[in-house]
Amino acid sequence: MLKSVARLASLVACAATCFAPGAIAQDTFAKVKERGTIVVGVKNDYKPWGFLEPSGKIVGMEIDLVDDIAGRLGVKAELVPVTSANRMEFLNQGRIDLIVATMGDNPARREVIGMIEPPYYAGGSNVLAHRSAGLTEWADLKDRRVCAVEGAYFNRRVTKLYAPELITFPAVPEAMNALRGGNCIAFLFDATLIESTLAEGSPEWQDFEMPLVTEDPQAWAIGIRKDDLSSPFGEFLRKLSEDWHASGTLLALEEKWGIKSSPFLQELHDKYKTQ
């Protein structure tokens, strides 16, 4: 219900932006320099990519990337916490200049916004489940209750292929709590988050596992407005993204934030290093 309202609202919003072209006509590059700040949409509820410290500061791997972007432009970074449901609207409305918020690159999103290549990470979907659930393959999910988070891109694909009874929650803590409370047999989410949860070795998760093979790799990319793609701003971000891979920045950050090293980053590092 909520999602359909959001979808309807975003449709209406898209229609509305067509009638208000003047708002974002100016080149983002010039605008950012003139303003002295770059406004970036980030996650603040996605450990270890973007999360809160008790002081209220947002930290994480993606925040380090944002700081690098701002540092190279010689401007200050202003972080705006976004959700999966509102980040593309915020971008197209002009509230933020770019998105660095665990956003998967897919054709449907490319219709609405522009994606910077190469991507800075690739996630995949998997489930966190109690050992006693005895899951061994994705097909075991059929007709079982599976917790998920609203707006996650893999929800639709998994529902279509494996037909679990999906119970969606507004955010990760609620879904994980439901899993622990026995409301569902598994929690469907991004594999990196599940890995980092298990890797922390907390006693409350010791009876849980990630039993399936990670599927559906999705590249995470920086999002910008479509008309920025061919502008100097888009060009700058593309170059920077290549440099992150070539120089090993991403590999170093991955280690810094305790993310299990991904073959994807290694592969791109080898590719761009030689160029």
């Binding site: 603040n44 999360f51 809160l52 990760v172 803590p173 622990r180």
Partner: peptide, 16 residues
């Protein structure tokens, strides 16, 4: 949202 973000940062369901 702050409560939720705090829960994510702590990654402990007993705090929920």
């Amino acid at each position: 949202t702050m409560t939720r973000a705090a829960l994510v940062a702590e990654a402990r369901t007993d705090l929920f």
